[in-house]
């Protein structure tokens, strides 16, 4: 499946806290090695992407919204946002939403 067509939702095992205009990701099953560090979302664009991740919008739809709202080329937005989603997935901030009829990835 094309990465851009994937839908993601926030991982319920990583609640987020918005405090002083920043979002803090607090994995509840965090690896113990991570205890001494914290993940932050602090730029307007990352805060907006986090807001848009709802399990329904595809990565492509989110890129289109960001491209319109922020002054950025389509190519740049796609490159940066795809990378951002991969980072979020890696740290356990988001999980893939499984579409109807689609087999979950193992």
């Amino acid at each position: 499946m094309d990465f851009l067509e994937k839908c993601y939702q926030k991982d319920p095992d990583t609640p987020s806290r918005k405090i002083a205009d920043e979002i803090i990701l607090v994995p509840i099953r965090r690896k113990l090695a991570d205890v001494d560090s914290i993940y932050l979302l602090r730029e307007n664009v990352t805060l907006r992407i986090w807001e848009l991740i709802d399990g329904l919008r595809s990565v492509r739809e989110i890129i289109e919204i960001i491209q319109k709202e922020f002054d950025v080329s389509a190519e740049q937005a796609q490159m940066d946002i795809v990378e951002f989603f991969k980072q979020l997935e890696k740290i356990g901030g988001i999980i893939r939403e499984v579409s109807k009829g689609e087999k979950p990835e193992k």
Binding site: A20, S37, I38, L40, L41, N44, T46
Partner: peptide, 23 residues
């Protein structure tokens, strides 16, 4: 566009930062 990254910051620095920002 702003930088799209997820900074991982050390807990000690995070504390100073949040206390400063919420003062």
């Amino acid at each position: 566009m702003e930088c799209i990254t997820i900074p991982r910051i050390e807990y000690r620095n995070f504390c100073e930062r949040i206390i400063d920002r919420t003062k």
